[in-house]
């Protein structure tokens, strides 16, 4: 029984650790999609965040690294926004280009800075902060309250974004832009500016997610280390129904499926763990098909908006 407790606790620790970057990227993407912009280039922000985090940490220490990572992710999103929102190019094609280009150019920068020798880079890592009292709660405590600052930022974003999106005027305007840019524009909401800001915000959180990968999760940088996290975040937004609370729960669920893989491999290597990894995607599809009640994307998602 004690062994089971230790196993389930370490599983939860892993699930939260793997869920945090997904939650960060997906919470930002929720805001972006609520404003009507789907950013397939989010993967690009994550990988730039990982590299920016690594370079920043070498120069400024781990916390400077987190800030640099967020900034790098925000800049990648700004490139996407400049094309997809300001120039009004197709969101899907532009996002694809940003992802492909980011994976390429982060590799190029990394190789020119550190060579292609494949020697593992050692980075200063962000330590975990134990929250007094709460961290003592059996099983759940160490999993949720003995994490790095990125996890606490993710927790904090849930109520903040919930309040912003559903309780403030600006949040209402932003959702109006996502539902019907024409109507929002007629009501005097600056569509282009709102969408640009929403996209860059998502880039900042996705960059932070990337910095979490290099500075909390691994302590190193490797090419392509984002490994689809940005794409997964888009699925997380769907499963979380464009709602901060739902999104963070969905991120934990995806993190749990990934953690289960490691736990199962340790117990029995023959278990078909790829099926567990596929499960969250299948459930996201089921959610879209309405199996868990009505789930609807913002009406104006991926819609073009001609600059007036």
């Amino acid at each position: 029984m004690a062994e089971f407790g230790a196993l389930s606790s370490s599983f939860l620790v892993a699930a939260v650790g793997l869920g945090v970057p997904l939650a960060l990227a997906a919470l930002g993407e929720t805001v972006s999609e609520r404003a009507g912009v789907i950013n397939i280039g989010l993967e690009g922000s994550v990988i730039w965040g990982a590299l920016g985090g690594a370079l920043g940490a070498l120069a400024l220490g781990p916390y400077g690294g987190l800030a640099a990572g967020a900034l790098a992710g925000g800049l990648a999103a700004l490139v996407f926004a400049a094309f997809a929102v300001w120039l009004n190019t197709d969101q899907i094609i532009t996002g694809t280009a940003v992802t492909i280009g980011s994976l390429g150019f982060t590799g190029a920068v990394f190789q020119s800075r550190f060579g292609a020798t494949g020697l593992a880079l050692e980075l200063p890592t962000v330590p975990a902060w134990e929250v007094p009292v709460l961290a003592r709660i059996p099983v759940v405590g160490p999993a949720f309250f003995d994490q790095a600052v990125t996890a606490y930022l993710a927790y904090l974003l849930v109520p903040v974004l919930g309040w912003f999106l559903f309780r403030t005027r600006r949040g209402l305007s932003l959702r109006a832009v996502g539902e019907s840019p024409e109507a929002a524009n007629a009501a005097g909401v600056p569509v282009v500016r709102t969408r640009m800001l929403a996209v860059v915000f998502a880039g900042l959180t996705a960059g932070l997610a990337g910095a979490h990968l290099s500075l909390v999760h691994t302590g190193t940088f490797a090419e392509n280390m984002s490994a689809g996290k940005g794409f997964i975040a888009i699925a997380v937004v769907v499963l979380g129904r464009w709602n901060p609370k739902g999104v963070v729960a969905a991120a934990l669920f995806f993190g749990g499926a990934e953690a289960l893989q490691f736990a199962l491999q340790a117990v029995d290597a023959d278990l078909p763990y790829p099926l567990f990894l596929a499960l969250p995607y299948v459930l996201s599809l089921a959610a879209l098909a309405g199996w868990f009640g009505r789930s609807r994307a913002p009406e104006g998602l991926a819609s073009a908006w001609p600059r007036g």
Binding site: F83, T94, T96, A97, I100, G101, L103, G104
Partner: peptide, 22 residues
């Protein structure tokens, strides 16, 4: 020149087409 540059060039092609098209 590291091979990864090719991916970057691919992305530039897409963005250039989008811009010229616009």
């Amino acid at each position: 020149v590291p091979e990864v540059w090719v991916r970057g060039i691919e992305a530039l092609v897409i963005l250039a087409v989008l811009t010229v098209d616009r």
